[in-house]
């Protein structure tokens, strides 16, 4: 499989700006040394709790925000070193769909303007031609051409999300970052949008980076899944393998938090101690303070991603040593 996106050592530190006179400010490492590759045609699910840095990763990949360190290669080209013009051209091949179907469409533009803007920016086609292509793209997302002359507020949340997807498709990209695309929608509408995204992937040969905190949705759409915790990838592997036997204690806790599909299957779920704001041990594994399997070395040395026999990668000493109790057993 050919690699479409290769990310190495991606880091983003947000400096909180101090005041003009008093200076200072604190830094947050939102993304901290992330390595990822996304193969052409696959869907890579990126999961993690709020504040884990998954949305920041999505924006960094498209260079919507500037990384502090690390490289991002898209179709072999280093996005971070691109000139303005080259980056503009590259934007035609990579797009993003947002979570909030209300905040992601400019309320003062008609659907035709919202969609045609993509072509205007890149100087493609006459106004009539742009409108025709906007209608074509609306058809791809199963909306009628009569939607063109309407304003975003005239549509429902699901329809607006289709418009957001259509905007991303206007330039016929090969790669789309889906940032929590269904989490603001009703469950019934979520299914429609997910199916639409999968149909589009088949029809147009798209590659997705699918960011979500909803594991059930991610499992449904993803080829592979990466689990993020506090700016780092803790586990990455094929979706089925990861769900069948989660290797990292954090992945296990995440999966244990999923509602059971049948009442009889409900186990005694214990959430991990502490919360994501719990103080982290400096230098050691970020999850050590909340991990029920933590050993002294976990608090001292930070584990790196290592490959398991089944090809999965996990950043946990005990998972690599195979010294963790099997999933589901009590420690």
């Amino acid at each position: 499989m050919s690699r479409l996106v290769e990310i190495e050592g991606l880091t983003k530190i947000f400096e909180r700006r101090g005041s003009l006179f008093f200076g200072g400010g604190r830094a947050t490492r939102a993304v901290d040394g992330v390595d990822l590759t996304i193969a052409k045609g696959e869907t890579l699910g990126l999961v993690g709790e709020s504040g884990s840095g998954k949305s920041t990763t999505g924006r960094l990949v498209l260079r919507l925000i500037e990384p502090t360190a690390g490289t991002i290669r898209f179709e072999g080209e280093d996005i971070g070193r691109m000139s303005r013009a080259a980056l503009r051209a590259a934007r035609q091949r990579m797009q993003i769909v947002f979570q909030d179907p209300y905040g992601s469409l400019n309320p003062r533009m008609t659907v035709a303007d919202i969609l045609a803007e993509a072509l205007t920016i890149h100087g493609e086609g006459s106004p009539a031609e742009r409108k025709r292509r906007a209608a074509e793209t609306l058809d791809l997302v199963r909306l009628p051409a009569s939607a063109l002359d309407r304003y975003p507020h005239e549509f429902s949340g699901g329809q607006r999300q289709r418009i957001g997807i259509a905007r991303a498709l206007m330039l016929r990209p090969s790669f789309i970052v889906c940032d929590e695309v269904v989490s603001a929608l009703d469950v019934s509408v979520q299914a429609q949008i997910i199916n639409l995204l999968q149909d589009l992937q088949r029809e147009l040969g798209l590659t997705y980076l699918f960011i979500s905190h909803n594991l059930a949705v991610v499992r449904h759409v993803s080829t592979r899944i990466a689990v993020m915790y506090f700016g780092r990838i803790v586990e990455i592997g094929a979706a089925d393998a990861l769900f069948a036997a989660p290797a990292h204690p954090y992945t296990r806790d995440l999966l244990a938090a999923l509602p059971a599909e049948h009442p009889d299957m409900r186990g005694a779920h214990r959430p991990p101690p502490g919360d994501s704001f719990a103080p982290r041990t400096e230098g050691g594994c970020r999850f050590a303070a909340r991990c029920r399997y933590a050993e002294p070395r976990c608090g001292a040395i930070e584990p790196k991603l290592e490959t398991l026999p089944d090809g999965r990668e996990v950043a946990c000493f005990r998972a690599i040593d195979n010294s963790l109790p099997a999933a589901g057993e009590r420690a």
Binding site: Q95, I96, F98, N106, R167
Partner: peptide, 9 residues
């Protein structure tokens, strides 16, 4: 939508 416009170039 501002970020979307930026993503469009």
């Amino acid at each position: 939508y501002v970020e979307a416009a930026r993503a469009l170039g």
